[in-house]
């Protein structure tokens, strides 16, 4: 058995496994750090991630009730300002008023837990139950591809499994659930993925089987899709190339890219006097 008893699955680590089992092993089981660049233009990439962070914070601040004009007047990046204006225009269109920003939910997945960190969950009593995710990447995927992404499958499944506490203690009927992606770089285009009982059951089976497979697999093979390795930091560790791929071709998820800076405030006792 590969997984420690306290292992927690997420859309991120499951997607990594599906993309490349070896990547999953290195990143989550061996916690291997490897200092390669994800893309060729790291300066632009870094800036893009910072913009994404700034935008997500703005939305959270707005949802917390900070005044729009105060927030808007402090944006010093034209692109972020455009995204924010687009979000103000339609980011919350048809979004129920009961809202839980930056919500974390967990559901059981076999012997383990499955955790989802959602940008926003909004529920209409007796009506729609939405999971919203703000996307700031340049690339807007085809709907059929996005439907297969683990994020789409995991978030809806977790809300169906663990959303009762947001719904007066009643489990949320799957047919009320919808996953909605909102694309900042595409003037607030939206991809919607409704849910139903069949899909819920299929997701449950798929996710449980996947977890069991990960726990029992004897070897974590490298992905057969070698083009993925260009955007993987482990490529030189796996002898899968030297140069990173082009930022223009990067289709990854900004949520799973660079780690945020660890705050070493809590490591105060590490000071050597």
């Amino acid at each position: 058995m590969n997984l420690p008893e306290d292992f927690v699955f997420s859309q991120g680590n499951l997607q990594d496994y599906v993309d490349c089992p070896r990547r999953f092993e290195l990143k989550y089981l061996r916690r291997q750090r490897w200092p390669a660049a994800e893309v060729d233009d790291m300066a632009a990439f870094e800036r893009h991630l910072e913009q994404g962070d700034q935008f997500h914070r703005l939305v959270q601040q707005s949802l917390l009730g900070l005044p729009e004009e105060t927030l808007r007047s402090r944006i010093n990046d034209d692109e972020v300002a455009r995204w924010y204006d687009a979000w103000l225009a339609n980011g919350l269109a048809e979004v129920p008023a009961q809202r839980w920003p930056e919500l974390t939910l967990t559901a059981r997945l076999g012997k383990w837990l499955l955790l989802a960190k959602m940008d926003l969950v909004a529920i209409e009593p007796g009506g729609a139950a939405l999971v919203l995710d703000w996307k700031t990447g340049r690339h807007q995927p085809r709907p059929e591809r996005q439907a297969q992404r683990l994020q789409t499958r995991v978030y809806r499944y977790v809300l169906a499994e663990a959303g009762a506490r947001l719904n007066g203690g009643e489990a949320i009927d799957q047919t009320r659930i919808e996953m909605r992606y909102w694309y900042a770089q595409h003037e607030g285009d939206v991809l919607r993925f409704p849910y139903d009982e069949d899909q819920y059951k299929a997701d449950g089976r798929f996710l449980r089987d996947l977890a069991r497979e990960i726990d029992s697999c004897e070897v974590f093979p490298l992905t057969e899709e070698v083009r993925r390795c260009r955007f993987c930091v482990y490529r030189s560790l796996c002898d899968r190339g030297e140069q990173p791929g082009s930022l223009a071709e990067w289709e990854g998820d900004e949520d799973m890219a660079l780690p945020t800076d660890a705050l070493d405030i809590d490591a105060l006792d590490e000071i050597a006097f």
Binding site: D6, T106, L113
Partner: peptide, 11 residues
Amino acid sequence: LRRSRAPGSAE
């Protein structure tokens, strides 16, 4: 809390 696998414990 994680080891307990109780729903919500990891949150």
